[in-house]
Nucleic acid binder design. Sequence first.
DNA 1: AAAAGAATCAACCGCTCGGAA
DNA 2: CTTCCGAGCGGTTGATTCTTT
Length: 348
Amino acid sequence: MGRAPCCSKDAGLNRGAWTAEEDLLLSEYITIHGDGGWRSLPQKAGLKRCGKSCRLRWLNYLRPDIKRGSISPDEEELIIRLHKLLGNRWSLIAGRLPGRTDNEIKNYWNTQLYKKLEISGSHAQETRNIKRTSKSRSRREEARHVSNKVPVKTTAVRIANGPVKLKGDLTQIVDTSQSWCQTFVDELMITNCDLDFVTTNNILDSASPFTEINRQGSPITKSNLINHQLQYSAVQNEFNTSKSSYFLNELSSPERNPLFLSFNFSEDMAVEEFEGRPKNDMHELCSLHANRQENESFTVCNDQGIQELFNDVEEGDWMDELRLLERSSLLEDDDWVERNSKAVGENY
DNA sequence: AAAAGAATCAACCGCTCGGAA
DNA sequence: CTTCCGAGCGGTTGATTCTTT
């Protein structure tokens, strides 16, 4: 049975530009009753519009926290950087720019920035590649493809840091449906483990596996887990610990306490997705995963994962971290290996 | 001043996703 | 497991405004 269209063209509904009267009706209704329930809202509010149209009008224009006026140079810079990291995920980008809507940013990109960057060169090519990729395979197909290829939990961000060589079985595929904590514990139990691997599962929900090795009986808290990892690996594997701690902080915290970190973890970043190679191509990412080649790093992120990754980052931190990520992405792989080999010592 | 072309942006459209039944 | 439905997303359209000739 087919689904009734949200807003039939011949249902006598108004279309096109909104009038001041319609805006008033919608604003007043939402002020009193709140938004949501978009399908039934127009009728309740006395509007001859479809729910979709009402939602769009509210979110993109009438919402009180919309920021008016032109995009500032700072905002522009942030948009460019975020687009480089995230591609055409306008709602995610808008989420980092308070008061700006995805539609506004999309329009700004397509009318101003795209041209600007096309003139300056490389980024426009990347944008074209992103567009081509998204056209060639639908999101659903992509998701199906991913799930066939590797056991990636859809809500997980998984990050493995290369090009550090792994001790042990390089072909092993880690099941990301495992709880974050179990994976963490598995890693801890391997001597000289260099694999840095997390998912966004809430750490506190995953407490039980940790309990088994937590012989001191400390409460299961984020900081205790970090301390635990530091005890295991701080001396011999400093840089890896720092990375783990960083992602632990970013991905698992409902409360996001500042971590105590005595070293500069930022320079250890090497997250493939953020480097733009092979950005947005899940097939390629998964092939990398499946082959698990040495000197290859990979990241598989879906939108939710990325959102979670950045959710709790304060504005200032976010900008700092963006800079650091970009700085790390400028490094050539060879340099990266060399630096980190020195940092880790002769373990490899 | 007027016409033509370019730029802008609000709104629409088709699709996907996730939850409920 | 399947179907339905509300919500949301990104691409596209087209009306309006601005700029150039």
